[in-house]
Amino acid sequence: MSTFLAGLAVFLLLNLAAGLWRVWRGPSAADRMSAVLLFGSTTVALLLVLAELGGEPALRDVALVFVMLAAILSVAFVGLPRTRNDGRGSGR
Rank of each mutant, 00 (worst) to 15 (best):
1 M>D: 13
1 M>N: 12
3 T>F: 13
3 T>R: 08
5 L>F: 08
5 L>S: 02
6 A>S: 11
7 G>Y: 04
8 L>D: 01
10 V>W: 07
10 V>P: 00
10 V>K: 05
11 F>R: 06
11 F>M: 12
15 N>V: 06
15 N>M: 09
15 N>I: 04
19 G>A: 14
19 G>V: 07
20 L>E: 14
21 W>N: 15
22 R>N: 06
23 V>M: 07
23 V>E: 02
24 W>T: 13
25 R>S: 11
27 P>Q: 11
27 P>T: 10
32 R>C: 01
33 M>D: 07
34 S>C: 13
34 S>H: 10
35 A>F: 02
35 A>V: 05
36 V>D: 03
37 L>V: 10
37 L>E: 07
37 L>M: 15
39 F>E: 03
39 F>T: 06
39 F>I: 08
40 G>A: 15
41 S>T: 12
42 T>A: 10
43 T>Q: 08
44 V>W: 02
44 V>Q: 00
44 V>T: 08
46 L>W: 01
49 V>L: 05
50 L>I: 08
51 A>L: 07
51 A>V: 05
52 E>V: 09
52 E>H: 09
52 E>G: 11
54 G>K: 15
55 G>V: 07
55 G>R: 07
56 E>V: 13
56 E>D: 14
59 L>P: 01
59 L>A: 05
59 L>G: 00
60 R>D: 03
61 D>L: 12
62 V>R: 08
63 A>E: 05
65 V>G: 10
66 F>R: 03
66 F>P: 00
67 V>C: 04
67 V>S: 01
68 M>R: 10
69 L>R: 03
69 L>P: 05
72 I>F: 15
73 L>E: 06
73 L>S: 09
74 S>V: 01
74 S>M: 04
77 F>K: 00
78 V>N: 04
78 V>T: 09
79 G>M: 10
80 L>P: 00
80 L>W: 05
81 P>K: 03
81 P>Q: 04
82 R>Y: 11
84 R>K: 15
84 R>E: 11
87 G>N: 03
87 G>L: 02
89 G>I: 03
90 S>A: 14
92 R>Q: 15
